[in-house]
Amino acid sequence: MIAVADLAVHYRDKCAFAGVNLSVARGTITALVGPSGCGKSSLLSCLNRLVDMVPGARASGRVDVDGCDVLDPRLDLVAHRRRVGMIFQKPNPFPLSIRENIAFPLREHGVRDVGERVESALRAVGLWTEVNDRLDRPALGLSGGQQQRLCIARALALEPSVVLLDEPCSALDPIASGVVEDHVASLRGRYTVVIVTHNLAQARRIADHTAVFWVRGGTGYLAEHGATEQVFGSPRTDVAAAYVSGSRG
């Protein structure tokens, strides 16, 4: 369960987005859509506090993930980021072997049964049959779609409760994109998923809820949030109506 209240992010004196209120129910998939520069990725980076790594970035407001105050400076970041996995736009497996990509973070978090977890994580993303004969080969030798699925496996191996995805398919070809999308859709029920996407059809296919972001005077804001069929079928705001119908954005 994620609850965001009056959240804003500033990069030095520029406001990326402000006044965002959003709640995400456990086990559901929420898609964040909207034009570039409206703060979708910035919002995502607040949920796992990766926003800390941007020099000059400052988040204000309140973010609760599973009852834990995420913006509290005393938050145990290591434990929190283990609970909240993240997949990036560009697949970013480490320059290690396929096995080590999953095993290395597991060992760092003190997990014992590393071997079993590597196998079950790879099975969960359909990679096991494709790579089980070359687990010690470099992960960078995999195709883009395989790399992205490896990144999902790497995150899932840590048994998070929340999975954040920042345009996970936009760097992939249509076929690989479809495979990754199916795996994202299969996360429903077991994980709370927040996915940023520029692909409206994708949002419509996989998301239970859709949040439409827009820009006003250089600052992003949440224009509309609701069940996906409502946002696409009978949007309440003009901005969302124009965006989902393809006449704007």
């Binding site: 796992n48 990766l50 790594m53 970041l77 290591v78 434990a79 929190h80 980021r81 283990r82 996995g85 993240m86 990036f88 560009k90 970013n92 480490f94 320059p95 290690l96 290395f104 973070p105 760092e108 978090h109 990144c151 790497r154 995150a155 840590l158």
Partner: peptide, 27 residues
């Protein structure tokens, strides 16, 4: 070293030290 590695390591809750030791310095 590409910043994706650093962000990826941070997002997995890895410490800066183990990131540098396993990824940053070898790269």
């Amino acid at each position: 070293v590409p910043s994706e590695y650093r962000l990826g390591a941070a997002a997995l809750g890895l410490s800066r030290g183990s990131y540098l030791w396993r990824i940053g310095l070898p790269q």
